[in-house]
Nucleic acid binder design. Structure first.
Length: 500
RNA sequence: GGUCCGUUCGUCUAGGGGUUAGGACACGUCCCUUUCACGGAUGAAACACGGGUUCGAUUCCCGUACGGACUACCA
């Protein structure tokens, strides 16, 4: 299958995988699945300084949690091993040499300090420094120096980088799947470093070489790469390769104001930007994860998919399989999308309800008797956003009230309702079958006999039972508390409520 | 500063030369309910601005404004 679709997700292990990165992975995965292609996971760890231990494992775990499984690459193996760029150093070197030999690239001996000095000089004159066709003749490189000098420098092991010789004139154009034609003049592109002085390739070289070797057909990545796409095209041209199809995804924006969604926003907004919880190995700081916050993987997936893409129909809820079936690059938007916590929560509520009470009960209320736990799930499911709220709710439910809703008390507590509660207290012990229906009938009967309307006392009764003016179905609550406890609660309330 | 990209309700978005500009989240109201929640119904809410092109532009073109990304021997 030489023409089959091959896409890749290529994160850097510099920290926890950002939720925007997860979406990029998702779109790649969806396209591969949709078209019967291959989804490859490649690790771009060419920056030794920014490498963070544990980040790669985190990426793998995050994708696994969401069901985005690589067909090839890290964690899956494949014909192009290794898939970790740091282990492919020699490959990049040979390709860089090829460019040197063909005159498309050159050695540069300028130090970082020299270049920084150039930048400040240019800046003070109100312009920006570019290492390009104009400036390179005045800098220290194999284009400006004599062959002897260059050979001498190389023989002395002088540190050098390899830079791409970007043509002074010309226009680079490519057709982005999402943005259509993009044109850039080569004059605005500088002679980017391809090989660093530590022998590692830069992103640009490694990326292009690997995408070519691995026969990537579609490069789907974030919009932050759009400005360097023309450089990549230039590289493909320099090697004489056909570039893949590019698709630059709109950015995920912060909920308030403008700008790219960042870690800071998560801390500020009280919502996660990472799929899983992450502990910084350096500082020990913990960042929240969608999973730990209580987001279900299918809700996270659905929500993320809709940030920048839509099926064009009015269907909102999509399983992974449905997303695969409906997905297309053509329906991805151009404009950045703001992260909306409320909508994410809504998706979670929807998916929560799709789970069986039995399943929710056993995973989130494991210490409670199964039958009773299921009853609790039924009682609370409509009132929660995250499954772990269940435990708190049950806990609260089981405790005797300490305070009683003042507002209800002051408006509803009077001689008549006092009498009503006393009647209920007397009637409940005679209730034979302790089931919601029977309890209700029992209460109804005793109040009717006294000529008291149920509506007049029920809220007060609720407060007497739970302390709260609002809550889940009272009759079912009574059933779950059990006769004994209901009587005890009622006695306590009657005791505590102000004397009439 | 330079290069590039973008702009439909508060938010995510559908649509596209002639529409009552559609849906979802959030919000308001009503219904359901002994309460709250859920659910149902309903309401308010948008084509950034200015020029073209056209019989007609929110839709096409050009500007302007605003926003964003990039501008490292980071990815």
């Amino acid at each position: 299958m030489p023409n089959s679709v091959r896409v890749r997700f290529a994160p850097s292990p510099t920290g926890p995988l950002h939720i925007g990165g997860v979406r990029t992975a998702l779109y790649n995965f969806l396209l591969a699945r949709k078209l019967g292609g291959t989804f490859i996971l490649r690790i771009e760890d060419t920056d030794q300084a920014r490498f963070v231990p544990g980040a790669e494992a985190y990426i793998l775990e995050s994708l696994a949690w969401l069901g985005i499984s690589p067909d090839e690459g890290i964690g899956a193996g494949g014909p192009h091993e290794p898939y970790r760029q740091s282990e492919r150093k020699d490959i990049y070197k040979s390709y860089a040499d090829e460019l040197i030999n063909s005159g498309k690239a050159y050695y540069a001996f300028d130090t970082s300090e020299e270049l920084d000095a150039m930048r400040t000089t240019f800046e003070s004159q109100g312009s920006a420094f570019q290492y390009n066709a104009v400036t390179r003749v005045k800098l220290r490189n194999s284009l400006s120096l004599s062959k002897e000098e260059v050979d001498q420098l190389l023989a002395n092991n002088t540190p050098y980088v390899i830079r791409l010789k970007v043509p002074a004139k010309g226009e680079i154009r490519f057709q982005d799947t999402i943005r259509d034609w993009v044109h850039v003049h080569t004059s605005s592109i500088d002679d980017k470093v391809l090989m660093k002085s530590d022998g590692m390739p830069t992103y640009h070289l490694a990326n292009v070489v690997d995408d070519h070797i691995m026969q990537i057909t579609h490069v789907i990545r974030g919009e932050e790469w759009l400005p360097s796409a023309p450089l990549h095209i230039l590289l493909y041209q320099a090697f004489g390769w056909n570039p893949p199809q590019f698709a630059h995804l709109p950015l995920l924006l912060k909920p308030e104001g403008n700008g790219k969604l960042s870690k800071r926003d998560a801390d500020l907004g009280g919502f996660p930007v990472f799929p899983l919880e992450w502990t910084d190995p350096q500082t020990g700081a913990i960042s929240k994860g969608f999973k730990q916050e209580g987001y279900l993987p299918e809700a996270t997936l659905n929500f993320l998919a809709f940030l920048g893409w839509n099926p064009g129909t009015e269907q909102e809820l999509f399983s992974l399989d449905e997303l695969i079936a409906a997905f297309s690059l053509e329906r991805i938007n151009k404009a950045g999308a703001k992260f909306d916590v409320k909508k994410a929560q809504w998706f979670n509520e929807q998916y929560l309800k799709q789970h069986s009470a039995q399943e929710l009960a056993s995973t989130y209320l494991p210490s409670i008797d199964a039958e009773k736990a299921e009853a609790f799930v039924h009682l609370f499911l409509d009132r929660i956003t995250f499954p772990q709220e269940l435990e708190r709710l049950v806990q609260e439910f089981s405790e005797f009230p300490v305070t009683y809703d003042e507002a209800v008390l002051s408006s509803k507590w009077n001689a008549e309702t006092k009498q009503a509660l006393e009647l209920i207290l007397g009637a409940l012990p005679t209730c034979e079958h302790w089931h919601a229906e029977d309890i209700k009938a029992c209460i109804q009967l005793c109040l009717e006999q006294a000529g008291i309307k149920m509506g007049k006392v029920m809220q007060l009764f609720r407060v007497a039972m739970s302390g709260k003016g609002a809550g889940p179905d009272l009759m079912i609550s009574l059933e779950l508390w059990g006769k004994e406890q209901v009587l005890a609660r009622l006695n306590k309330a009657l005791d505590i409520f102000p004397a009439i």
